[in-house]
């Protein structure tokens, strides 16, 4: 087989790891709070700016920067929940979608206002691994590994801890859980914070590979939605598998044609699958 094709497939798998992490965060929020955060990718963009400024402008060591980014984006998640989501919790779903869409507009243009449209890079160059004739970028490998670790950690948190159990319970039945003595509002805040933290973690991984600019959310935001819907909104395992399907379509499509057409292919695949399995691939 052509080594470039193998490289494309491997890169697809590695991209899938980061997408899976993002899909997990979005799915968690949807499953628990029942609101689609259309601005999720733009919250990741905020995290990338935090990393850029702390690391490049203030010279704080990278691991510490990443921790601070995760913490601040988790806080941003809570703020978003309190200011925007909480007031529309009982509105029509479409109004909730539009409110977070307004947030998308706001974050993108506010970032443009503050930082301009320049592409900024944190300038960390990690080595490229050379296995036989294949070249694999180390930063993608890290992103993939950390993405998987994050997913497993989230799974263990949801399965093993009290709050995790409460979160899963609320996703199953929000009326009864209140009667069991669970404070719904607190769980919503915790969920928003975890969703934010996952976005912050994804920001750390993406900052190693991509330049930061105000509209970077548009590059992978729509893709994350397709993944979540394909896997079934709120279905975390489905979203996890769907990330790898979509990332393979993008990677292999990019090998045979070009990047735009590979995305066209991914979106078309999504539309067709919505007709075949309207509630996601793994719907029962």
């Amino acid at each position: 087989m052509d080594p470039y094709l193998i490289e494309a497939i491997i890169n697809g798998i590695l991209l899938g790891g980061v997408l899976a992490l993002l899909a997990l965060g979005l799915n968690l929020i949807f499953g628990v709070i029942d609101v689609v955060w259309i601005a999720y990718a733009d919250i990741v963009m905020c995290g990338m700016y935090v990393i850029y400024f702390l690391y490049v402008e203030y010279g704080i060591p990278l691991p510490l920067t990443c921790l601070m980014a995760i913490a601040s984006i988790a806080a941003l998640g809570v703020v978003v929940h309190l200011l925007i989501i909480a007031p529309v919790l009982n509105s029509a779903p479409i109004n909730q979608l539009l409110a977070t869409g307004g947030l998308l507009f706001f974050l993108q243009s506010f970032a443009t206002l503050l930082f301009g449209t320049d592409f900024r890079n944190i300038g960390v160059r990690l080595p490229v691994l050379e296995i036989a004739t294949l070249y694999i970028s180390f930063s993608r490998l890290i992103a993939f590994a950390v993405g998987l670790i994050g997913a497993v950690a989230l799974y263990l948190f949801l399965k093993r801890t009290y709050i995790g159990t409460a979160i899963r319970a609320i996703a199953q039945d929000r009326e009864i859980v209140g009667l069991m003595g669970v404070d719904q509002r607190r769980i919503y805040l915790v969920t928003s914070a975890i969703g934010g933290a996952l976005a912050g973690l994804a920001a750390c991984l993406l900052a190693l590979q991509y330049d930061v600019h105000p509209h970077i959310g548009n590059t992978f935001g729509p893709v994350i939605f397709m993944i979540c819907v394909l896997g079934g909104l709120g279905n975390m395992i489905g979203g996890f598998i769907a990330s790898f399907i979509i990332s393979q379509i993008i990677a292999i499509g990019g090998y045979y044609a070009n990047t735009e057409l590979s995305y066209v292919l991914a979106f078309t695949f999504f539309i067709v699958l919505m007709f075949v399995r309207p509630r996601g691939i793994f719907a029962r």
């Binding site: 925007i84 007031p87 529309v88 509105s91 029509a92 109004n95 539009l98 409110a99 869409g101 307004g102 947030l103 998308l104 507009f105 706001f106 974050l107 993108q108 243009s109 506010f110 970032a111 443009t112 206002l113 503050l114 301009g116 449209t117 105000p214």
Partner: peptide
């Protein structure tokens, strides 16, 4: 201030949806 207009626009949209659906 390229983004200024859209920033205010974004805030107004959120307020509109919360207070004047």
């Amino acid at each position: 201030f390229i983004g200024a207009a859209n920033t205010i626009y974004g805030i107004l949209l959120i307020l509109c949806i919360i207070f004047m659906p």
